[in-house]
Nucleic acid binder design. Structure first.
Lengths: 229, 229
DNA sequence: GCAAAAGTGTTTCAGGTACACCCATGA
DNA sequence: TCATGGGTGTACCTGAAACACTTTTGC
């Protein structure tokens, strides 16, 4: 009667990573030309398989690091994708994760090695299998999460300007934000530290650099207050 | 170089269902005494394994139906749990789903067959493996989802009273709600239909029955408005 | 001196929250 | 008639949204 008396089926379990970066005022996703059949040459997310001796979370970290050259990447699980014929080659259950990286840290030599490219989310081509679904689900999660948790900073360098931070949130929400309201909100939380240097790359006047202060954020949370953008 | 040249590992993939019902003004979860080693006799969620020829979603539906006798259950994926040693017996990757059922439809004969019991969420005992994590994650998701999608009705009979609906939301949010504000909000959405009959079980005066009207809800959504409780 | 981006406060409005009394009925 | 839960409206307050001008500086 109980399952233990039956032979249980085993499955290939894959990882697919939606690796996101931010540049040119837009969210970008790392994509690769698929080097195998089926769909050889089609655009694909970064993938790999879960090994017997590693946790699913670690497999995701391994895959993300393999394709970016970055360790300690911020990642969250998107979900498991398990249609029988989702991978037309063979039955594979895939667990998707999104990763938020500082695109400056990306190891460009790996782009050649794996034939990868950063493409704007807004210009994403058709991807193989159900990878477009994974991206769609990721963006939905990201929009909700970034509004209530300070995870957006993972997409920026340690030091960033407020105009850049705002354009990041505009890219995430896909809508424009009022500059004064945005600054009021983010500065009002008192989780940013203003630095003395300015970034003069995008204006003559220059914009002050800021840094995210995790200690102050933790205090905020402990006081029962919440991040909200 | 590419993964295809290596032997890929295969895995047992399980389903664990957090099956939720509502009675006695409280959320309840269906639990079972585990009939196998390891942890034989420990409290467990409803589980099963994914077969080679079925989608993960269908496996979840199959498992939920098997233990409740109910088909067409509302379910959502919670996530994949993949620590190497999460199941102390063997390496099993589990995909958790929560299910919202009208507890009236539960087939009580199955409770004996599988040695299951409905336990209040607030009194949940220690469960085997990482099942308590799954429940915790489920409740977090449910609290967010139920606030913006009309999924709570899946926990009630087709006809329900406003006092019952309110106590459901109080159970989900784990906080009391002002009666007048609650009614203002839910009735203001105009997605409920008032019936002529009253429920006299819990008061002498009786409370009117209402029904969720999916058509009206869909209209609401199409107008760009949103469910919010 | 001008173009181009950075920086800065106040008013308005909507929606959430708080709150207390009458009603219907069975026992 | 009384105890019990069902049903109803308003005032207040907080937080979001709208909105325009000055500053800096490289060219």
């Amino acid at each position: 009667m109980s399952p233990i008396f039956y032979q249980k089926d085993v499955h290939l379990v894959a990882i697919d990573c939606i690796i996101m970066g931010f540049k040119d005022n837009d969210l970008h996703i790392l994509t690769a030309r698929r080097p195998f059949e089926p769909f050889k040459g089609g655009w694909s997310l970064m993938g790999g398989f879960v090994n017997a001796n590693e946790s699913v979370n670690n497999a995701a970290k391994r895959v993300a690091a393999e394709f970016t050259g970055i360790s300690n990447i911020y990642m969250e699980q998107v979900g498991a994708y398990g249609d029988v014929d989702r991978d037309l080659g063979e039955r594979v259950i895939s667990i998707a994760y999104f990763a938020l990286v500082d695109i400056e840290l990306f190891d460009r030599s790996l782009a050649d090695k794996f034939n990868t490219r950063w493409v704007k989310v807004s210009l994403l081509p058709q991807l193989v299998f159900d990878h477009n679904d994974m991206v769609r689900d990721t963006i939905a999660i990201l929009q909700k999460r970034a509004a209530i948790k300070p995870i957006g900073f993972n997409l920026l360098s340690k030091e960033f300007t407020l105009p850049v931070l705002q354009s990041l949130y505009e890219a995430i929400y896909q809508e424009s934000i009022d500059k004064r309201n945005f600054r009021k909100k983010i500065l009002g939380m008192e989780i940013l530290e203003k630095l003395d240097e300015k970034d003069k790359n995008s204006s003559k006047r220059g914009a002050y650099y800021y840094q995210f202060n995790k200690e102050k954020y933790d205090q905020l949370v402990q006081q029962g207050l919440h991040f909200s953008l």
